[in-house]
Structure formats: C-alpha cells, structure tokens
Design a protein around this nucleic acid. Sequence first.
DNA 1: GAAGAACCGGAAAGACCGTTCCACTTCGTA
DNA 2: TACGAAGTGGAACGGTCTTTCCGGTTCTTC
Lengths: 229, 229
Amino acid sequence: MFRFGYDGVMSSVTSAADTAVRPLRKDAERNRALILDAAREVYAAQGLDAGFDEIARVAGVGVGTVYRRFPERADLVEALFEQEVDAVVARAEQAAADPDPWRGLREFLSWGVEAQAADRGLAQVLALAGHGHERVATGRERLRPAVAALVRHAQRAGVLRGDVTELDIGIAVAMISRVGGTDRSQLRERYVTLVLDGLAVRRDGPSPLAPVPASEDDLACIVAPARGR
Amino acid sequence: MFRFGYDGVMSSVTSAADTAVRPLRKDAERNRALILDAAREVYAAQGLDAGFDEIARVAGVGVGTVYRRFPERADLVEALFEQEVDAVVARAEQAAADPDPWRGLREFLSWGVEAQAADRGLAQVLALAGHGHERVATGRERLRPAVAALVRHAQRAGVLRGDVTELDIGIAVAMISRVGGTDRSQLRERYVTLVLDGLAVRRDGPSPLAPVPASEDDLACIVAPARGR
DNA sequence: GAAGAACCGGAAAGACCGTTCCACTTCGTA
DNA sequence: TACGAAGTGGAACGGTCTTTCCGGTTCTTC
C-alpha cells in the first residue's frame, strides 16, 4: 500500500527501503506524550483491557487522536512495555550485584511481586504469549539473562537450590503477585518468604523438583485469564 | 410485591410464611437440569462471566428460559457451587484421615490445584468475596474446618510448620492453580513441591513467617481480576 | 502571511452483549 | 378432549464499547 500524504515531498525513490519516518508535528508529538502518560496510568489501574476512550479522557485529547497515533492497540502497549522492562532489568542487575546473593534474590522477588501487584497492565504484558508480540518477546529475552545471572550467583554461593531456573523466578513473582489486593503487600511478603523457604538450600536438603521444562507460554495464563476463547 | 399467578390457587393465608414452592412442571424441571449441566460445562471452560446465551445454546433452550429459571445470575452460580463444595470438603476430610499427614496434605494440595486449574468457574466462585453471596460464604465456612483439621494433623505430627493456617493452604492452592495452561499439570506439580518445601518443618528450621492476618477477601483477588472498577 | 498538509475533537456508525417481552406451545387438570 | 396456566423461544431493545469519519483547526513551509 502507498500511503499518500505521509511522505510529504514526493520522493522519486520508490524502493521499499525508504522508510525514513518524518518527525511528528509539534502538537502531535506533545499529544503522543500525553497519551503515553495517560495510558501508563490507566493501564496500571485497570489492566490492559481499559478502553481507548478512558485513556483519551485522562490525556485530555479526543478518541480519534489516540487512534491516529496508535492505530494498533499493540503499538501503545508495547511502547509502554519497553520502558518498564528497562526498570525490571535494572533491578535484576542491581540485585545480582548484591554482595549477599540471597538478599539480592529476596529483594528482587519482593520488588517484582509488588511491581506487578501495583500495575495490572505490567503483569498482563509480561504474561503475554508470543503471538505476534515481537517487541514483548524481545523485551523478555532481554530480561531473561539478567534474572539468570541472579539465579546463577545465588546458586554458586550455595544458597539457592540447583534445580531452579530463571523461569521459576518469573513464575513465582507472577504467582505471588496475584495474592491479596493492592494494599496487602504484607501478606504477599509472607508468601515470598514461604516460597523462598522452598527455594533455599538447607542442611537436610529440599525435595527434588521434577524436571518439567517450563515454556514462556506458561507465564501467560497466570495473569491473562484466556479472554480469547 | 405480590406476584400474581404464582401461587396458583388463591390462598387466603397472606402471611409471609407461606413460601410453599410448588413443584415445577415436568418440562420446566427437565430444562432446569439441562441448564445446570450446560452451565457447569460452560463456566468450567470460560469462567463465571460467560454469557447466558452461551449456556442456553449448549443446553439447547432459549435464552429466555434460562432467565426465567434463574432470574438472578447468582442463583445459578450458587446452585452449582454447593455441589462442588461438597466434593472439596469430602476430599479434605479424606486427606485429613490419611495415616501419613504429610501425604494427605500433599494430595489435597495437588488435587485442589488441579481442580481449580481445570475449572475456572470453581476458582472464581471460591474466590468471591462475601458481598451478598451468603451461600458462597456458608460453603466456605463449611470448607474451612475441614482444611483446618488437615493442617492441625500435620502440625501435630510435627511435619508442618506451626505458623501456617488453613487460609494459607487455600491461598496456596489458588495461587498455584493459576500457573500454566490446562495441560500443564506437571508444571503446577513442580510448584506444589516447591511450596510444600517452604511449608515443611526441617531440622534447621524455616524462616519465621510474619504473622500477617489473612482475611477471606485476600483470596478474592487472585482469580477475580477486579472487573468492577 | 498565505497555502496546504497534518492534525484535532467528538459525533456518528457499527459490533456486541445482557435483558425483556410476547405470540405461540406444552402440560396438568377436569 | 378441552381449557387455562405455565412454560418456551427468539426477536427486539437498550446499553456499552470500539472504530471511523469529517468539518474545522493548527502547524510548517515558501
């Protein structure tokens, strides 16, 4: 398809490679930022299936503007997601750098649980299966080694059982984050402790875990209740 | 309000106590059963917010019939729920009777997790907060002592840590049941093991859990994603 | 500062879902 | 068998949410 009026100057180059994106007009750029801010707020509070009209209302723009700026719903979600993944990765790296690996792991778990408990949208995106969400998949691939490093450190230090993977940590975070309302962080902390007790190496050794391979998709169903039938 | 034509014969007794329910007509009774069966199936697959029209379709009746038989949505849900609670209570009692208390606990946990993973509706009803759902509350009150007995037995035998309550078990079941798709029971079993490791009494002792009091409502949010805003 | 492309808001159209309503059928009774 | 009450199906209604569309506005460029 050839989108008229989008390239501005008639380009004589007609190859598919001239995907030079011209900058948005000033007001459009401002609105884009307003929409992103509003979406962050609304998604955090209501989850990903909040309506565009609500976002438009909070942003103070018309619905049409939201649709023009983000023709695909996924564009908006993924734009937000990439910023959030940065924060999670940073936190994982910080945790991995802790001189006390167990404390690092514990803090990452607690923080992740609260982050997802406070932001329904984040939890849902993180759980999105790969179906056409390349940017989400990429983000998660970026997250994975950071958590893996955290796991490896704790295991090398002999405090984390060896049969635990970085996916276990991700699943544990998502699982525990569903406990209680927004204000029940103390309760969630209880289960963080409980699960960590199960994850810890003890003198009399934990029961061996069956080596069931977990796939990325297993994360999906914890939060996203399979709305598509 | 006085509902005409419902009492059939004009009763001279007008006190509120004459709640004699006349039996349904034969075809109505048959449809009622069809609807209950269909609802069980649909709710299990799609969760409680499945539409009445879907239930009607599966039952092979018109939507109107469903509405007439179950004017309140809750009537249908709770009618099903009571049957299901019976099964859970039975299972808990069976587990508590196991000569090996730890095995009993483990089997109850595994079974409960799979039951809720296979039946989205069950998980959602069990998690319903008390708001006007007296029958659900009653059912859960019936469930509670059964699980408490299970917990007590394991604690008396010295295999379950003393700071664990029956609500912890309920929350653990709900939490773990959210992991993976319907077909990932092996994965869920992994987390059952993990959580049980955290729950077990070990020679070098588990970390103390903070005594955060859990309320019934804390169960609610694990499964029911706060659809009401 | 004038022309015109890009952009805006919000009304209108469309899809969807829960609920009600009523012309017709089935059942129980006499 | 015949009558009336009880029950039935599904069309129609009203509400909500998503998306499109267009007359008017704002920005950029020359």
